[in-house]
Design a protein around this nucleic acid. Structure first.
Ligand SMILES: [Mn+2]
Ligand SMILES: [Mn+2]
Ligand SMILES: [Mn+2]
Ligand SMILES: [Mn+2]
Lengths: 220, 220
DNA sequence: ATAAAAATTTAGGCTTGTCTAAATTTTTAT
DNA sequence: ATAAAAATTTAGACAAGCCTAAATTTTTAT
């Protein structure tokens, strides 16, 4: 039904709107799609004609329920393929995103549901992002940012909010991957950098910029 | 490099040319692609400009070495995904072709080579068709047609030369799948139909039309 | 050897998704 | 409250892939 380009726009609108909460601007979409604002305007009109977005000229855009459903399906496919590539094919978590960008457009529901079962119904992808259900709902686990943890606390690494390959590679090297147990040994007041103990290995240093992009939950 | 449409043309030219042996006509391509001859002509000019086919007006088309390499890659991807769907996801062999038509266009070589390893380097797909190597060569096992077997002989079912879902479903019901051991009990001279014993089950009847599309090798 | 038939190509056009340049609307700053 | 700046839309264009209708070339049948 929705073309590849349309699916990409819908997915992007979902992400940029904060899961559908706010309006998304034409320029924000143009920046992320690597296209020009004029091209975005054209597409928004088409999506509005198909009832996939609410769009009023100059007023930004948001997903309709139909548009959100398409977006969530695409995100579900993307994240399941990422799990497949990491868990079954042995890819690293910093390698899979660009390939998932292509695989996410293979539409067969039968394929995706069987893949889901084959992977044992994972609830999150290799980066800790939740996987929408077949029924089209997005689980929203409540994680904190590592930068908000106080010294002396022990937390579990749950995911990232920044997906750049270089960032992910840095985290792997530090042993900071989902599931890692992290104790905050020390926080430097001046720049909010942290010294962490990760899974019983030697203490390591992370900047505020890094800590801000790590999602954690407090260990019970 | 090659677009999705281009990949489909190249793959089709490969198949219709008998693995590159003969020239393919515009009309033959138009019929299979469900497009008009005029559209095929347009595409052939584009493919010729990119040095993927040899094309002379009114004289038909054949693949260049470059074109053949692309075609074999696409066929390799198609067949590996079919193995994946049947072996890992539990699809039936009559269900996977349309989905593989989409998956075959995901280009990542890394993905395909890892998938190949994950599947234990299969040499043929669920229909018995050989899988081109990563290096771009097509294995060509030499199979006979079941219709050429004489009464009393015992053979192994190796594949099919007709891929229609209805045909594949019929074969499954009869237990005629790759690997089955088949003894030809009787051949009816009049219509060349056969009575077979398949894997020790009760004798079953197949028409010449069916036997003609089953590939076998003689058991050693 | 020719005329009819079949195959193929050319000409002109359409849709999707993109572009640049120009016009318009909204926002921001005085 | 305006004027400048920023954001957005409109206008006109283009490539990819497809279409129909008409022209051309090749093949087949007399
Ligand atoms: Mn991703
Ligand atoms: Mn995409
Ligand atoms: Mn197939
Ligand atoms: Mn295809």
């Amino acid at each position: 039904m929705a073309s590849l380009a349309e699916e990409n726009y819908l997915k992007l609108i979902y992400h940029l709107s904060g899961s559908g909460a706010e309006e998304v601007s034409t320029n924000a979409l143009a920046e992320q799609t690597q296209t020009r604002a004029a091209s975005v305007t054209d597409m928004l009109r088409k999506l509005a004609d198909k009832n996939l977005v609410h769009y009023k000229k100059y007023q930004g855009v948001r997903l309709t329920p139909e548009g959100q459903e398409v977006a969530l399906q695409v995100i579900r496919r993307h994240r399941l393929w990422e799990v497949f590539m990491v868990e079954k094919l042995g890819f690293r978590w910093d390698e899979v995103h660009p390939i998932a960008e292509e695989l996410e457009h293979i539409a067969s529901a039968e394929l995706i549901n069987r893949l889901d079962a084959f992977l044992d119904f994972p609830v999150s992808d290799p980066h800790g992002d939740p996987i929408p259900t077949a029924a089209g709902t997005m689980p929203s686990p409540e994680y904190e940012k590592l930068c908000e943890v106080t010294a002396g606390q022990r937390v579990t690494m749950m995911g990232v909010s920044e997906h750049a390959a270089s960032f992910l590679q840095f985290l792997s090297k530090a042993g900071l991957i989902p599931g890692s147990i992290v104790s905050v040994l020390e926080i430097n007041d001046f720049d909010r950098s942290m010294i962490l103990k990760i899974n019983e290995s030697a203490p390591s240093f992370v900047s505020y910029e890094v800590a801000r992009n790590i999602l954690i939950k407090f260990s019970v």
